[in-house]
Design a protein around this nucleic acid. Structure first.
Length: 581
RNA sequence: GCGCCCGUAGCUCAGUUGGAUAGAGUGUUGGUUUCCGAAACCAAAGGUCAGAGGUUCGAUUCCUCUUGGGCGCACCA
């Protein structure tokens, strides 16, 4: 759909060229934005000031000449010049109605991409033999949300879980299990992640303190990488136990992601290193294969390497990331790759991206692959420091989620709702998880944010519950009037009152918001949009009676579109929508 | 030391091609229901946008410096 701003922009651009046919304007792009104040109209154009120099006269004169050339049209109701040369625009309700009707007639509320660009989103990425913790929460939630938005926009999205399932740690864990837990490896004894975590700690201790064990562990790594059957089998058992644990979390959070861990790229590592070497990018430093890149130096001011092979011949995460990038471009044909990790890895990815560019991995069939590191800040505890439990341990994600659900349950019970125990429990479940997700997504991801059950579970303010409440209220109203949807959906929309027009204009901006997020990758913009939508609906609902008035069915139609966008928007954030609460 | 990120109301945060009087939420104070869900709405109060300079018609936004905080910087990922 051509956005409303675009339509206005086209109209004004034509007028500008008619008004100043001989002028060469510096910028073919008009600046049209939402008005900053209600009395400045619906939209404002700020370009007259910018053109002042090029046209050699004052912004006000430009604006006056410009608007005289604006032909009569069905979009603009009124224009006005204010201040130094701002052009304020009031739109015609009929034009909004027409666009809204067109939008609502489609099953999907925005147009799909002309070309289904292939986009890889690398997110979540827990580590085998470790609990998922808050650090994985943001990657998982934000990554899933971006994936949903890109899918909705019609991109061909490949969600990849780059699990930490390979590397030196497995040697010691396998060695330890062989020595102390043979029944687990033989499959005779089932176990869970909490035991695994303890064994991991114990094996680490032995590794650090016992030279003999260390040697055995290192041999296990070699055996594993060689693909020896016993070692591989042990590795598979360890992975399976871990996956059980994080699949439980993904089920709770409704996250869909394809497992493709570091181990997947193991067979590609040697070839990748060879390829980089053949391209002359690699030099040997202290026995390790390194790529030295301009602009990166270490604490002693010496060049900082991107190490792609260790001096002992082993590979590390840079090797895997280079191989993965190559695979995603060459085999998966990705034209864009997003990496959802904390901002601490910014330098690492900056180096990976630069090295990939130098190696020519980003040019494929005339297309330049776009790489985005999508960084995010830390989750902080109430003390403003990195989130920890009271005992100072890193909090397991599963506990965190359960706690939110328990807290939501308690709050709902306090309210004394007219719900069955089962319905209340279900609502608490949805509310708890929605609250965690929304609290995360509604903050700008760049910043650290303070985690607080109390704040995220509030029923008022910019929270998940506020959006859910706005939605159920609309659904309730639709039920209450007992009008068959086929009747109100076929009743022409009318935007008579200012609050109706405001709501209608806001509804039209949905696609524009999603497109913007596909560029800046900031889901908080969708949260803000939906929060404003709920507010504008509340204003409409305050000013415009729905039930039992002559405009009833037209207004029910508007309510229905509002509910659809609220629902779609919440689903794009990964929130569950309920019909009653 | 080098590099990256951040500093906006008491608190939590928006504010991205530079736009008019910097906005929400929360908290505080006051108000709104014979009427569609008051889990709502309205209003008041609250600011040196960390500080200083620069760029220009215009800077929270871009540049430089200062300051405070966070993170990264060779064989863990």
């Amino acid at each position: 759909m051509i956005s409303f701003v675009q339509t206005l922009s086209d109209l004004l651009w034509d007028a500008l060229q008619r008004a100043f046919p001989d002028a060469s304007l510096p910028n073919a792009c008009l600046e049209i934005t939402l008005s900053t104040q209600p009395h400045f109209g619906h939209y404002q154009c700020n370009s007259a000031m910018r053109f002042s120099k090029a046209l050699g006269c004052s912004p006000r004169t430009i604006a006056e000449t410009w608007l005289k050339a604006l032909p009569a049209n069905t979009f603009i109701a009124k224009v006005d010049i204010a201040g130094p040369g701002f052009i304020n625009i009031w739109v015609q309700a009929d034009a909004v109605t027409a666009q809204l009707t067109m939008m609502a007639s489609r099953e999907r509320l925005c147009l799909p991409q002309a070309l289904a660009e292939r986009i890889v989103i690398d997110f979540s990425s827990p580590n085998i033999a470790k609990q998922m913790h808050v650090g994985h929460l943001r990657s998982t939630i934000i990554g899933d949300c971006l994936a949903r938005i890109f899918e909705y926009l019609g991109f061909d999205v490949l969600r990849l879980n780059h699990i930490g399932d390979w590397g030196t740690a497995f040697g010691m864990l396998i060695a330890y299990l062989k020595q102390h837990q043979p029944d687990v490896l033989s499959g005779q004894q089932h176990t869970d992640l909490s035991h695994l975590v303890n064994w991991y700690r114990a094996s680490k201790k032995s590794f650090d303190e016992d030279a003999d064990f260390k040697q055995i562990a290192q041999q296990e790594v070699v055996a594993l990488q060689r693909g020896e059957r016993d070692s591989l089998h042990a590795w598979q058992i360890i992975c399976a136990i871990s996956k059980e644990n994080y699949q439980e979390i993904y089920d709770l959070l409704d996250i869909r992601v394809t497992d493709r861990g570091e181990s997947f790229y193991n067979p590609l590592l040697a070839a990748t290193v060879n390829d980089l070497t053949a391209k002359g990018l690699v030099s040997i430093s202290d026995g390790a294969k390194c790529i030295f890149l301009e602009g990166f130096s270490n604490r002693d001011g010496e060049p900082l390497p991107l190490m792609i092979q260790k001096s002992d011949g082993g590979y590390n995460y840079a090797s895997t990331d280079m191989a993965a990038l190559k695979h995603r471009v060459e085999v998966e044909h990705a034209t864009r790759i997003l990496y959802l990790t904390d901002s601490g890895q910014a330098q690492h990815f900056a180096m990976i991206f630069k090295a990939a560019d130098l190696a020519g991995y980003l040019k494929q069939e005339g297309i330049t692959v776009r790489l985005d590191h999508v960084p995010f800040g830390l989750v902080l505890g109430p003390d403003g420091k990195k989130f920890k439990t009271r005992s100072g341990e890193t909090e397991a994600l599963i506990d965190l989620i359960q706690a939110a659900i328990v807290e939501a349950d308690r709050l709902l019970q306090e309210r004394g709702l007219d719900l069955s125990a089962e319905a209340l429990h279900h609502t608490a479940h949805v509310l708890g998880i929605n609250a965690i997700k929304y609290a995360d997504l509604s903050n700008n991801r760049i910043h650290d944010y303070v985690f607080s059950y109390e704040r995220m579970l509030r029923f008022d303010g910019n929270t998940a519950a506020f959006l859910m409440y706005a939605y159920v209220r609309i659904q309730s109203l639709k039920r209450r009037t007992k009008v068959n949807p086929s009747i109100y959906l076929n009743t022409p929309l009318e935007l008579l009152q200012p609050a109706e027009l405001e709501l209608g204009l806001h509804l039209l901006r949905f696609e524009e918001i999603l497109r913007q997020i596909s560029h800046d990758l900031l889901p908080n913009r969708l949260c803000e949009y939906l929060f404003n939508l709920a507010e504008k609906f509340n204003a409409f609902f305050r000013d415009c009676r729905v039930e039992g008035v002559s405009e009833q069915n037209a207004r029910l139609h508007l309510c229905d579109i509002t509910a659809r966008i609220l629902k779609t928007g919440m689903e794009l954030l990964g929130l569950k929508v309920i019909e009653k609460m």
